[in-house]
């Protein structure tokens, strides 16, 4: 359950950002979670819900945008969708492509008052 630790970190980031901007209320937290980030999307949703419970963010709407994995073949340069780190290039069969997206694990923005 490392998702819960990550959720606690996210709450810290949100609190720091909101307080430094003089916000009194956070209406929405927008997160980006990549399919290759090492975090389970569903577990992250649950972890965020339980982590905000009892805090000043309890009623905040949490939107998680899931980022699909994309990679560029290190051999032939082909761009392709990737679901696992060990996926092969569909063109030339090479392993170890360069990941272009899907590693995201970040707090993107907040809607505050």
């Amino acid at each position: 359950m490392h998702e819960f630790s990550i959720a606690i970190n996210i709450i810290d980031i949100v609190t720091d950002a909101a307080e430094s901007q003089g916000a009194k209320k956070v209406n929405e937290i927008e997160l980006e979670i990549g399919d290759l980030s090492g975090v389970v999307y569903e577990a992250m949703e649950m972890a965020m819900e339980s982590a905000v419970s009892g805090t000043w963010l309890e009623n905040t709407n949490i939107t998680i945008t899931r980022i699909k994995g994309k990679a560029k073949c290190s051999q032939c340069g082909k761009m392709f969708s990737i679901d696992n780190l060990f996926d092969q290039c569909p063109e030339c069969g090479a392993f170890n492509p360069v990941i272009q997206s899907g590693k995201e694990l970040k707090v993107k923005s907040l809607q505050v008052e």
Binding site: I13, A18, L110, E113
Partner: peptide
């Protein structure tokens, strides 16, 4: 999943763009 816009005139956006594990 869905998003709601309530049209609060005083709601504003803060761009954070921080890695969740930055700390």
């Amino acid at each position: 999943s869905h998003q709601h816009a309530h049209g609060h005139a005083h709601s504003r956006e803060i761009i954070v763009e921080q890695n969740a594990l930055q700390k």
